[in-house]
Amino acid sequence: MSNPHSYDGPVIDVSRTSVRYPDGHLGIQDISLALPRASICALIGPNGSGKSTLCRTILGFTRPTSGRVQLLGMTVRHAQKQNLVAYVPQAEEVDWQFPVSVRDVVMMGRQGQMNWLRIPSATDRRCVEEAMARMEITDLAQRQIGMLSGGQKKRVFLARALAQGSRILVLDEPFTGVDAHTEQGIMALIRGLRDEGVTVLIVTHALSNVPQYCDHVAMVSRRLIAFGPVSTTFNQSHLTATFGDVMAETVLSAVHADTSVPSWSLS
């Protein structure tokens, strides 16, 4: 059970989880979902629906007030200590003026696996160089992170997650503020990781391209509205229950009418 490579239960296992904030305000209520190994799941819902809260609970930033979250059969903290989880934050949450270089940030992906003095080993350096090469940012390695374009910034943090080499990857709004080219790049990367056995959870506003790159979808509005494979779950009635009539119509017509506009987004 403690060996993450031979574990074959659900990789992300949320069972009957509720979060209430200290002032009694409800975050999420009684949500259960189980994500299998090597899958890509979109977590969608309107603003204030609790999808960020669910994401924060899975990452251990918020404690559930009832129920529990298990990652690869372990507690969240235990899984984190074993470096099984990677997180790509929203671009707005990063201090871009911080005096660190691109290589410094990618190396932070290795931080949990280094010795106590945090001196990078040959393996650490190799992982960092490989991740930077894969995200095509090797020639930016010495730049201070504020001197990058929006797409480059995104790729730095994806490279950091890659360098970590985790089994679970959580991305918060990876498609906001990036051009179509970068978006396609991110999708290709995510699919590649899935094929390598990584479980990917994406919190996103961009609904129309969910069927394009996800195999699972979870719709949240305080409670779990629907969860399952995209082919059966991403339909009119579930979208209506989550977002309301008008929105569901718009999304579905966008999906069916024109899949060549992948960056269409609600936000």
Binding site: G60, Q80, Q82, N83, P89, E93, F98, M108, Q111, R160
Partner: peptide, 12 residues
């Protein structure tokens, strides 16, 4: 100082 959330996720 730079990214406490990432620090927590990698097990610090």
């Amino acid at each position: 100082c730079f990214d406490p959330q990432h620090a927590q996720v990698v097990g610090l």
